[in-house]
Design a binder for these strands. Structure first.
Length: 430
RNA sequence: GGAGAGGUGGCCGAGAGGUCGAAGGCGCACGCCUGCUAAGCGUGUGUAGGGCUAAAACUCUACCGAGGGUUCGAAUCCCUCCCUCUCCGCCA
C-alpha cells in the first residue's frame, strides 16, 4: 500500500488533473510533472487490483486446506505455490511502481491559495502595509558590521578563525542583548499571545525533513551527519511539524499554538557570495518560531494572527517594518500563502526579512500524517499547519543596533528590553 | 558500551501456525432504566485502500515496532534492524 505521505491529495490530482495543473503552473511547476503522476497512478491501480485478487484467492484456498483430505491437500498446496510465485512477481512490480509514484508525488509543490497574487519572482511581491517611519538619522548611520566590533560586542575575525566564513562571535553586551531578546520574545508569545513553549531537538531524522517538506528538494542546504543519518534543523518548523506526526488529534484541542527558540543551521550554498558581510546571513543563527495546527477552515485567520503576533514584536521594539505578501512565483514549495515581515535597518539601508509567515494548509500534514477528529467517531481529517518567525535574532539585532545608534557610537536599548538585557545603553569598551 | 526483559487496538492485557482485526477489562459513543449524585443494563467502538450501492448493508486487500525469510497459511516460527525498560559502566 502507498504510504500516507504524499503532498497533494492523489484523488484530487486524479479527478481534477487540469485544474491542478493550472494551479501548479502559477508556482512554476510544469504540467508534465502532474501528468507523470497520473500516469504512474493509473498503472499502480491496475496492478494493485490484480494483486488484491490474487491475494484473495490465495487466502481462500489456504483457509480450506485443513478441511481437506490428505491427497486433496497436496494438490491444493501445489496450486497455491504456483499462485504465490505469480503474486510475488506482481508484488515486486507494484512495489517499484509505488516507489516511483511516491517520489514523483513528493516533488509536487503545494497549491497556492487563491488570494495569492500571481507573479514571476520576488519583484511581483506586494507590500501590504508599512508601519512606522524608516529612520533617517541626522548623522551618517553606521552599518552593524562597524558598530558591533567598535562596541566590542561582535567579533567576526575569531568567528571565522574557529568555524570559517559566515560565523561570528557575540560577546559581552552583544551576547546579552541576544539572550534578552530571546527571553523577552518568548515571554510575549507565551504570556500574551497564547503559545506553548517547546524546546525541540536540533538534530532530526530524515523522515522529519520529508514531513516538513525540506526533502527531497533542498538536501544541499542542510547539514547532515552521515554516521547516524541525523540532520541539523534549518528552522524550528521542522521539529515542530513532526511533533504530532502520525497522530490523530482531538479536534477540541485545536488550534494548537507552539513557540520554540532554537538555533538554526543552513549551508547557504545557494547564496554563496551574497550578504557575506555582517551577521545577516550566517550558517548558524537563532530564531524564535511560532507554529500553529488548526482545522482547515481556521487556517486563513490563523495566518493573519501569526503575522499580527510577529508584527507586535517589531512594533514594541519601535522598529519600522513592512508586511509583504509573497507572489506565487516566490512562494516556495510548501506554503500556500506567505507573508514576509521586513524591518528597516538604517545602517545598511535595507529592509531585512525578519520573519516569514506561512500557511502550509494540509501539505505538511499529509506528508507527516497529522490528522484530527472533529468529534468522537467521526472521520479523521488532515490538519492545517502554519509557521512564522517571531522573530529571527541576528536581523532583529542588526535593526536594533542600527536604529538605536547614537552620534557618539553608543546604542540605546529600547525600554521594553532593558529589564531583560540589564542595561539602557551599550557603550564602547573602555 | 556490556548483560537481561520486552514491544499487540485510545489505554491495560490475552493470544503461541488455520475465519484473529485480534478474548477480557478500562475508557469512549449511542440507547435504556433509574425522579438527585452514583450505580445498573444493552449496543457499538481502529486506520488506509478497492469492489458493489442513490446511500447503506455487504464484501475484498493491507496493517499486532520496522524490514526480510520459512509455510498452502504467521500477531504467533527464524534472521536483521529500531525503540523501551532493568542492572552495570561512562558522563553534562
Amino acid at each position: 500500500m502507498l504510504a500516507a505521505a504524499h503532498m497533494l491529495d492523489l484523488r484530487l490530482i486524479r479527478e481534477r488533473t487540469e485544474w491542478v495543473k493550472e494551479q501548479l503552473a502559477k508556482v512554476g511547476c510544469p504540467g508534465e510533472d502532474v501528468d507523470a503522476v497520473t500516469a504512474v497512478d493509473a498503472r499502480r491501480r491496475t496492478l494493485f487490483q490484480k494483486v488484491e485478487a490474487l491475494r484473495a484467492r490465495r487466502s481462500e484456498i489456504s483457509r480450506q486446506i485443513p478441511k481437506l483430505s490428505a491427497e486433496e491437500r497436496e494438490t491444493r498446496k501445489e496450486e497455491v505455490r504456483k499462485l504465490a510465485a505469480e503474486l510475488a512477481a506482481l508484488e515486486a512490480e507494484l512495489a517499484q511502481v509505488e516507489q516511483d509514484l511516491e517520489s514523483k508525488l513528493l516533488l509536487l509543490p503545494n497549491l497556492p491559495d487563491p488570494s495569492v497574487p500571481v507573479g514571476r519572482d520576488e519583484r511581483d511581491n506586494q507590500i501590504v502595509r508599512t508601519v512606522g517611519e524608516p529612520l533617517k538619522p541626522s548623522f551618517e548611520p553606521k552599518p552593524h558590521w562597524e558598530l558591533g566590533p567598535a562596541l566590542g560586542i561582535i567579533d567576526f575575525e575569531r568567528g571565522v578563525k574557529i568555524a570559517g566564513s559566515r560565523f561570528y562571535i557575540l560577546q559581552g553586551w552583544g551576547a546579552r542583548l541576544q539572550r534578552g531578546l530571546i527571553t523577552w520574545m518568548l515571554d510575549v508569545h507565551t504570556k500574551e499571545h497564547g503559545y506553548v513553549e517547546i524546546y525541540p531537538p536540533y538534530l532530526v531524522k530524515r523522515d522529519c525533513l520529508v514531513g516538513a517538506g525540506q526533502l527531497p528538494r533542498f538536501a544541499d542546504n542542510i547539514y547532515h551527519d552521515v554516521e547516524d543519518d541525523l540532520w541539523l534543523i534549518g528552522t524550528a518548523e521542522i521539529p515542530l511539524t513532526n511533533l504530532h506526526r502520525d497522530e490523530i488529534l482531538d479536534g477540541s484541542r485545536l488550534p494548537i499554538s507552539y513557540v520554540a527558540y532554537t538555533a538554526c543551521f543552513r549551508r547557504e550554498k545557494m547564496s554563496a557570495g551574497r550578504d557575506v558581510r555582517g551577521i545577516k546571513r550566517g550558517h548558524q543563527f537563532d530564531k524564535v518560531e511560532m507554529y500553529k495546527l488548526t482545522a482547515p477552515e481556521d487556517s486563513s485567520a490563523a495566518l493573519e494572527q501569526i503575522v499580527a503576533d510577529a508584527e507586535d514584536i517589531a512594533r514594541r521594539l519601535g522598529l519600522a517594518y513592512r508586511v509583504v505578501l509573497i507572489c506565487t512565483g516566490d512562494l516556495g514549495a510548501v506554503a500556500a500563502k506567505k507573508y514576509d515581515l521586513e524591518v528597516w535597518a538604517p545602517g545598511c539601508a535595507e529592509w531585512l526579512e525578519v520573519s516569514s509567515c506561512s500557511n502550509c494548509t494540509d501539505y505538511q500534514a499529509r506528508r507527516s500524517n497529522i490528522r484530527f477528529r472533529r468529534a468522537p467517531g467521526s472521520k479523521p481529517e488532515f490538519v492545517h499547519t502554519l509557521n512564522g518567525s517571531g522573530l529571527a535574532l541576528p536581523r532583529i539585532m542588526i535593526a536594533l543596533l542600527e536604529t538605536y545608534q547614537q552620534p557618539d557610537g553608543s546604542v540605546v536599548i529600547p525600554e521594553v528590553l532593558q529589564p531583560y538585557v540589564g542595561t539602557d545603553r551599550i557603550g564602547p569598551p573602555r
